[in-house]
């Protein structure tokens, strides 16, 4: 029986189906419930309605939280992209072995558990008066997202042909012009994808935000956290869907940017 091709093929089929259910069920349930016409959590929902989205967008608690999240993620992703790309360029050209050490230090916020970063930043930011401020949250999110930009751009620079720059310079281009017209266009897909990564991570970030936010400055994930602990109301499913759509949108944009530049889509 164990030798038979059909048995193994069937078993593989069962494994595949179970896996897909396990990985996707939570997401599908959330999406479906967010469009439920019932007044409480029930599955499958009796009908389709947009009432939870209406509730979400008419409730100032949620709109303010969404707005706060945007006010954090845009500047944070912008700063992280600039600093991360600059660092990636510098490290790519550094020959000393300090480059490895510096890269390790810059990547550290990605490697060490976020709870440590969160506690440390909270402790110090409280002293510096950055606790409960938008600035504090933006800086904290830059720290968390910079490693993603650095690693994405570095991976691109590792396969970048430096002779193209030499060629431009030999033809009389100034260093700035070479950078602007040759280097940047060639690495721009990875810079773009690093920035999208940074945006998604900032939007989804909870732990550091939980420490740094106050009822006045409260991003959407923290608002969700305090609601989930209370009860599971379908409005949260609507918010969850918005969060997911944001990630999906970023993923699609990344795919488009890569396809345009002729690069293989990455993870």
């Amino acid at each position: 029986m164990f030798q038979s091709e059909r048995f193994w093929g069937g078993l593989r089929g069962v494994i595949n189906v179970l896996l897909v259910i396990y990985m996707l069920a939570p997401l599908v349930v959330t999406l479906v419930i967010s469009f439920s016409s019932a007044l409480y959590l029930t599955f499958p929902p009796p009908g389709f309605s947009l009432q939870w989205y209406e509730k979400m967008f008419s409730n100032p608690t949620w709109t303010r939280a969404l707005w706060t999240s945007l006010k954090i993620l845009v500047p944070a992703a912008f700063i992280a992209t600039i600093c991360g790309t600059a660092a990636a360029l510098a490290l790519n050209r550094m020959t000393s072995r300090w480059a490895l050490v510096i890269r390790g230090v810059l990547m550290a916020p990605l490697i060490i558990p976020v709870i440590i970063t969160a506690a440390a930043i909270f402790g110090v930011f409280r002293i510096w008066g950055l606790y409960g401020t938008l600035h504090g949250l933006i800086i904290a999110h830059v720290i968390l997202t910079l490693p993603f930009v650095l690693s994405t751009v570095s991976a691109n620079l590792a396969v970048f042909d430096r002779r193209l720059e030499d060629a431009a310079m030999n033809c009389g281009a100034t260093p700035w012009m070479t950078f602007r017209r040759v280097t940047l266009p060639l690495i721009s897909p990875s810079v773009m994808s690093g920035m999208l990564f940074a945006m998604v991570i900032s939007f989804d970030e909870l732990i550091v935000s939980l420490f740094l936010s106050t009822p006045r400055v409260r991003p959407v994930t923290v608002q969700m956290w305090s609601n989930i602990k209370g009860d599971t109301d379908p409005t949260i499913a609507a918010i969850a869907t918005v969060l997911f759509m944001f990630s999906l949108l970023a993923l699609l944009m990344d795919g488009i940017a890569r396809r345009r530049s002729g690069q293989a889509p990455g993870l």
């Binding site: 990985m23 996707l24 069920a25 939570p26 997401l27 349930v29 959330t30 419930i33 959590l41 599955f43 998604v200 939007f203 989804d204 909870l206 994930t221 969700m224 956290w225 989930i228 599971t232 949260i236 499913a237 969850a240 969060l243 997911f244 990630s247 999906l248 993923l251």
Partner: peptide
Amino acid sequence: PFWTSILVRSFAWLV
């Protein structure tokens, strides 16, 4: 799931 926030996934499991 890798691209969905942990918060969203945990909420879904609760439901």
